[in-house]
Design a protein around this nucleic acid. Structure first.
Length: 158
DNA sequence: GCCAACGTTGGC
DNA sequence: GCCAACGTTGGC
């Protein structure tokens, strides 16, 4: 299995929203690197660190998992959507999305500053300056350490 | 609200 | 194919 970190602005969709909905469609990915990760590597059951961006504080808020593999994101064809893409063709969709299922909400958000200050998380993409990628791979070691920091209930499958 | 960093676009 | 201009992300 692979492990991920996915960003969402909590004003748009937060871990609490996911806890309420239990499952959601992850539409709106509009970056080719992120799309390629979803298309090529995201599998049902992969665990995801749910990251709050543009938040107070920004940081990791909980855990989700991939519930459906990549399929065309309908908002690319919706003129009324903020995610509309005039260049996307119905017979050759440009943008894909996955479905995501709630796993766990951390007792407290792990702030970005906390992540940055932890030597065990050195090299984790999300703490790099200027890193904007909204779907990032996470190593098993980093993922496990984040779960430990959060005193999480979630356990990493072997 | 500011602005650094980054990805994308488009002229050449 | 280069790269300047532009738009967006996201921390602060």
């Amino acid at each position: 299995m692979r492990l991920w970190l996915m960003k969402s602005e909590p004003d748009v969709y937060s871990i609490d929203d996911l806890a309420r909905d239990r499952r959601t469609t992850w539409e709106g990915v509009r970056n080719y690197t992120a799309r390629n990760s979803l298309r090529d590597d995201a599998k049902v059951g992969d665990l995801v660190l749910f990251y709050h961006s543009n938040a107070e504080p920004s940081g990791i808020a909980g855990v989700a998992k991939i519930a459906r593999e990549a399929y065309p994101d309908p908002t690319q064809f919706d003129r009324k959507s903020a995610y509309y893409d005039a260049g996307a063709k119905k017979d050759d969709p440009r943008w894909l999305m996955v479905d995501v299922q709630f796993v766990e909400r951390f007792a407290e958000v792990i702030p970005l500053a906390r992540l940055k200050s932890d030597p065990a998380l050195a090299g984790m993409p999300v703490i790099a300056k200027g890193q904007r990628l909204s779907v990032q791979p996470v190593t098993r070691e980093h993922f496990a350490h984040v779960l430990a920091i959060a005193n999480a209930k979630t356990e990493l499958p072997r």
